[in-house]
Structure formats: C-alpha cells, structure tokens
Design a protein around this nucleic acid. Structure first.
Length: 745
DNA sequence: ATAGGGTTAG
C-alpha cells in the first residue's frame, strides 16, 4: 500500500509532467494535441490552465484562450499576465488595455507587456505615457521595450535618447538600439555602434547580417556571416532567406544542405524560397519531407499553390491541414477571388470561425473588384473592426463601377485616410475620365500634407495627357524628377503618354530614351504618339526597332502602327501589316484595327473596299468602325454608303446626339426633308437630349472650360470677337468654314 | 512547468 503522501506526490508529479507536455506541444504549434492532454487530465492546477491560455494564444486562438481564462477556477497574477501576453501576440491592443485596467494587481511583467503592446502597433504616445507612470524604473526591461518600440517605428533618434538616459544597460539594451539602426537602413551608424558594444552576442551579429540584407548588400551580409564566432540557426536562416528573396534559390539551398541544425523555421524559409520563385514542385517535395510542420509551413505551401494558380491543390492541402488558421484559409479565399470564383470564396469565408481583418478585406475586395458593391456593403456592415484598407477597398470598388460620388462620400467620411485612399480616388477620377477632378484632388492632397508617390504621379500624368494639359504636365514632370520617381516604369510611361498626346514627339522620345525601364506600354505610347502627330514613317520605324529589341507587339501596338500607315498615306504597307497580324503574330484584329483600316482605305478613296472589309468582319463592327466608314464615305461623296454607315452608327449609339445630327445632315444635303423630320421625331421619342458641347484650353497653367450656349462665360464678347476675326482670316486664305446645319430645315 | 525587452520563416 502506498502512503497517502506518496500518492499526492505522484499525482503532483503527473500534473507537473503533463503541464510540461502541454507547453512543449503548444510551442511546436501542435495545439490540438495539447488540448487532448488537457482534456484527459483529471487533476489540474493553475499552471495547467495558464499553459493552456498561453498555448491557445500563441497559436492564434485568442478566443479559446479567453474562454479558458474566464472559466478557470483560481487566477493568479501569472494568469492575468499570460492573457495580456496573449492579446499582445495577436495585436489586440484594445482587449489588452481593457484587461490591464481590470487587473487586481500589476507587476513589472504587466507593465512591460502593455508598453510593448502599444509600441508594436505604433502608438508610442500611449507607450510613453505608461512608461512615465511606471513606479520603479530601475530594471532595464521596460526601457528596452520602449527603445525597441521607437526603433521599430523608425524613430531611432528617440531610441538613442532613451538609450543614453537609461541607468543600467544590459546586452538586450545594446541589441535593441542596434536594431534601431539595422532595421532603418542606417548601416554606417549600425557598424559604429556595433563596434561599441562591450560584449556582442550572436543576436548582435545576426542584426548586422539582416541590416546588410535590407540595404541589398549581400556581399557584406555574407562577410559578416563568415565572421560570426558561433553562428546559430537564426544566422543561417537569415542568410538563407536573403538568397531566396534575391532570386538566388540555389545558393539558399546550398546553405540549407550544409547548415548544422535545421529547425522548422529553416525548412519553412527554404520552402518559401522555392515558392516565391515559383518553383512549386521543389517546395512541395521539401514540404512532404520535413520532419515537423507548423501552421506557417502549411500556409506557405497553400499560398504557393495559389500563386501558381493550382487552386485545387491549395484547397486539397487546406482540407488536410490539421488546425486551419485564418491565414491559410484567407490564402485560398484570395485564390478564389483572383479567379473570380466569388461563390466558392464566400462558402469558405462563411465557414471560418475566427476571421481577422485581412480575411474580411479579402472577401470584400473580391466583391468590389467585380463591381458587386451591394454584397461588398453587406459584408462591410457586418464586419466588426474595419481598418483603412476596408474603406480603401470600398473607394476602389465605387471607382470601378463608375459611381464616383459614392467613392467621394466614403472618402469624405473616413477619419483616417492614408496614401492609398488618396491614390484610389485620384486613379478613379482618371479612369472615369474626370481628369480635372483628379488634378483637383492631387492639389488637395498636397495641401493636406500627404506626400504623393509614384502611383499618384502615374495617375495625374495620365490625366494631364488626356487633357493635353502640357503646362501642368510639365510641372508634374519637374516634381517627379525632384522626388525621384522617374525611375518608376509607370511614371515614365505616364510622361511618354503626356508628351505624345500633347503633340511633343521629340520630348516623348527623349523621355523614352531617359527612363531606365521600358516595356510594351512605353513602346506603344511612343508609336501611337508619332502616329497621331503625323510622323507615320517614324512610327513604323519605331515598330521595327521594337521588334529588333526582342519585344512582341500586341493588339495596342497594331492600333498605333495601322493609324500611322493611315496618317502617312502608306496604304499598301498598312494592308500588308494588317494581314500580317493574323498570319505572323496570331493576333486577331478587333474593331479598333478595322476602324484604322477603314480610315486608311477611305483616305485612298477605296471606300467600297472599306465597306467590303466591314461587312466581312468576323466580329461585330462597333461605333468607331461605322464612324470611320461614315467619315470616309462623306469625304468621297458616297451618299448611299454614308447613309448605311450613319444608320448603323445610330444603332450602335442610340443615345448620342451627334449621330442623329449627322444622319439628319446627310438627308438634308440630299434634300430628303421627310427623312429629316423622321429622325427629329425618333430623337424626341427616344428622349435624346443634346449634351452641351464642351471644350477647354490651358492658359498660364489654368484650364478654361467652354460650354456651348453658356452666357456666363466671363470673357464671352472677347472670344466672339476673336472668332469672327479668325473666320474672316480663314475666308481670305480660301478656306470655307463648314457650318453645322443641325436639325434645321 | 505558465507571463516581459533584442535576431529568422507565412
């Protein structure tokens, strides 16, 4: 018979070892197994409960952690601190703050946790407030937390101030400060500081490696790596992933193969390397071979399959994943969203128990990108905590559906806007043709102290290009130079488009030669620029240069090239190129190409041939094509064909006033007043209203807009005077102005 | 055995 005391001791030992097991399993990411151990235990103590709270929180299941915290029989200070740490690890600052306020007792752990919480999310004001309230500041831990906070938020000068003030420094203080330099690309300061550290440990060395990697100096990183007295697994992984991130996967693999100890992080880093360089099969082989997987291994692999478009493999893996975290499920949702399988995405989304902001945003952006704004709004209203990204998605969505007033409404109601919010709105205006508004908002964003980036410039440059606002565009050009955005492809292309559309082909060519990166869009803009400004031969010359450069022309290229042929009167060349599209480049002509061809044949007087081309088109002719045919037949006085084209044009665009006017004019010229009357009636029945004609001109960097029949125009009389003078002048040199007969008899 | 400050993987 065992004595009672021995039984108690043995039971205690059992609890002790089971607690240890729970801790071990949770740290390895095997939380379900930990739960099983916990559930089988007949006796539990406070440490058991605390370990479970910690385990859940570390595996992203804060809700479960909190449930255990609330249900546990007797909490001690460690329980409170563990829960607080749980919120910290999951970036739930508000929950942490609430808990902190309710704590019956606080110690240095509690204060440090709360300070770290604030500084991790960048709220250094609140962190500092707490730090100042801290009763006893003799321990370096809190100082270190503050220094790390400043360092992570790029305020290494503030970090340095604290560092110099603190009474007792330990190695972590030095490393925290060093991190302030290395994480902010201040490698000169970092190197100097590194030399001053009295006793460096492997973390100090690792920080130096990562710092050099950050500034792109892999040579120095490798050199430092070679000097470390006792590199640890972090040193190896840092170096390995540096290679992987710089497309040197094979170098990474060489390190992986020779490193002395490979933990799960090392395996994950290697898999990430393969996956990010789209070598999915090699990544998957490693995934299958690795001795132990955690949630990151699964998520990386799933994300990899999504990247290469193997959605079914991604989904299969997700179903096999033991505990599905939000990140993995969101990766698959993202995959569905990207392939516009919104219903599959939604089904998965609805299944997820504990969604985070990224998950909500992914689903909402899926709807928004497809223009399903009602669905997007429905989710938005249900979403518990919306961030800037959520609102930005809505703005982008409304821009996409062309509902700019709604986009502006969302924008105006946002309390915290970021650069993306501004850019979304500006790009929305540009994409929907509201170029003036794009420029207006560009000015306000500058006034409000928001610094535009390359995306902003790309948008406003395109706006200027479409407005042919050369002066404003030129100023933007200067700004991009000043802000160093000229090396950006989109900005470069914006500038080429600007000068091309403003008729400045020489400047456009200069831009083309100056920018570092050119792509097919750069070539297309330049070719089109030469084409529409009457330099057809040079445009075609450029087309050949582009090919010699090894770039394959696309649909857009041929629009430019064909219009170049048309403008330069190179009829046979145009016909030849048009045919080569299908025979040599396997590009099926679309209506824009047919319009060019009609225009081209029309200019040569080959109107009937143009009509034949249109009637034999394999795709349906659009308004542009009929418009081109109409123009050609009117110039060559082919009244019958003009009538046909005008009727078709009217069919294609029944709400455009000018089409009625044109058709009516044709009949008027032929003296068919009955037809004129019929069209007038048709217009009335369909409720077509004449849009006021509008034009604008840029003078001294101000755009002046003119509307037809607008008596409020400030300098109307002067304008009319000038017009009259010009008309007289034109008559004198023999030009007969063509007056719009309109719908008058 | 459970809670805090510095480095690596999604």
């Amino acid at each position: 018979m065992k004595s009672k005391l021995t039984s108690i001791a043995e039971a205690g030992n059992l609890v002790f070892s089971q607690n240890l097991r729970i801790t071990h399993l949770s740290k390895a990411g095997r939380i379900e197994e930990a739960v099983r151990v916990f559930e089988k235990m007949t006796r539990r103590n406070t440490v058991t409960w605390n370990s479970m709270i910690s385990g859940y929180a570390k595996n992203g299941r804060v809700g479960d952690a909190r449930r255990h915290f609330d249900e546990m029989p007797a909490k001690n200070l460690v329980s409170w601190n563990t829960m607080l740490a749980g919120y910290l690890h999951n970036d739930l600052v508000e929950d942490a703050a609430n808990l902190f306020d309710r704590m019956p007792k606080r110690d240095l752990f509690s204060w440090t946790l709360m300070i770290t919480c604030y500084s991790r999310v960048g709220d250094l004001g609140k962190a500092m407030q707490l730090f100042q309230k801290l009763p006893d500041k003799s321990d370096p831990v809190c100082w270190n937390a503050m220094i790390a906070g400043y360092a992570k938020n790029k305020q290494f000068l503030d970090a340095r101030k604290l560092f110099d003030e603190m009474p007792v420094k330990d190695l972590i203080s030095y490393n925290s400060m060093l991190a302030g330099y290395t994480q902010n690309e201040e490698m000169r300061l970092a190197s100097d500081f590194f030399e001053q550290i009295p006793e460096r440990d492997v973390v100090s060395w690792n920080l130096m490696i990562e710092g050099f990697v950050q500034v792109g100096d892999l040579n120095m990183a490798g050199k430092v790596f070679g000097q470390i007295p006792n590199p640890n697994v972090v040193s190896w992984v840092t170096m390995l992933s540096a290679f992987a991130r710089n497309a040197r996967v094979d170098d990474a693999r060489r390190l992986f193969d020779v490193m002395p100890v490979r933990n799960v992080v090392a395996w994950n880093a290697m898999i990430t390397g393969y996956v990010q360089n789209l070598r999915i099969e090699e990544g998957y082989q490693l995934f299958l071979k690795m001795p132990e997987r955690n949630s990151i291994s699964w998520t990386t692999m799933i994300d990899g399959f999504v990247r290469v478009g193997l959605l079914h493999k991604a989904r299969e893996l997700l179903e096999k994943m033991p505990y599905k975290n939000v990140a993995a499920q969101t990766a698959v949702i993202y995959g569905y969203v990207r392939s516009v399988r919104l219903d599959d995405a939604r089904l998965l989304f609805d299944r997820i128990g504990c969604r985070d902001t990224v998950c909500w945003n992914t689903m909402i952006s899926g709807y928004a990108q497809s223009g399903r704004m009602d669905d997007a709004m429905e989710l938005m209203l249900k979403m518990p905590k919306k961030d800037v990204v959520s609102w930005n998605i809505l703005i982008a969505g409304y821009c996409q559906t062309g509902e700019m007033s709604k986009a502006v409404e969302v924008f105006d109601r946002m309390v915290k806007k970021n650069l993306v919010s501004w850019n979304s709105l500006v790009s929305g205006f540009t994409q929907n043709g509201f170029y003036m508004d794009a420029l207006r908002y560009f000015l306000s964003m500058n006034r409000e102290g928001m610094k535009p980036d390359h995306a902003t410039f790309a948008c406003v440059l395109s706006a200027c290009a479409n407005l042919a606002a050369l002066q404003a565009g030129g100023q933007l050009h200067q700004l991009t130079l000043k802000n160093g955005h000229l090396n950006n492809l989109f900005v470069g292309n914006g500038l080429i488009a600007l000068y091309s559309k403003c008729g400045r082909v020489i400047e456009a060519k200069q831009m083309f030669d100056e920018i570092i990166w050119v792509d097919i869009i750069s070539w297309n803009s330049l070719i089109a620029g030469y084409a529409i400004n009457g330099h057809g031969k040079q445009a075609i010359q450029l087309f050949h240069e582009m090919e010699a450069d090894g770039l394959r022309p696309d649909e857009i290229t041929f629009v430019g090239v064909l219009s170049a042929c048309s403008h330069a009167g190179l009829i046979d060349k145009g016909v030849e190129i048009f045919h080569s599209m299908t025979s040599e480049y396997s590009i099926a002509p679309v209506s824009e190409h047919y319009s060019c061809m009609v225009d081209l044949l029309g200019r040569a007087g080959r109107v009937e041939e143009a009509y034949k081309l249109v009637s034999e088109m394999p795709i349906e002719a659009n308004a542009g094509t009929w418009g081109a045919l109409l123009g050609a037949s009117r110039i060559h006085c082919n009244l019958e064909l003009a009538k046909t084209a005008a009727e078709k044009l009217l069919e294609a665009e029944p709400y455009k006033t000018s089409n009625y006017v044109t058709l009516s004019n044709i009949h008027a010229e032929a003296g068919r007043w009955d037809e004129v009357e019929r069209i007038r009636k048709l217009m009335k029945e369909r409720g077509v209203i004449k849009q006021p004609g509008c034009s604008w001109i840029e003078v001294n960097n101000k755009v002046h807009a003119f509307f037809a029949d607008d008596p409020t125009q400030p300098r109307l009389s002067e304008v009319c005077e000038t017009l009259k003078r010009l008309t007289v002048k034109m008559r004198m040199i023999g030009h007969l102005p063509e007056f719009d007969t309109g719908l008058v008899d």
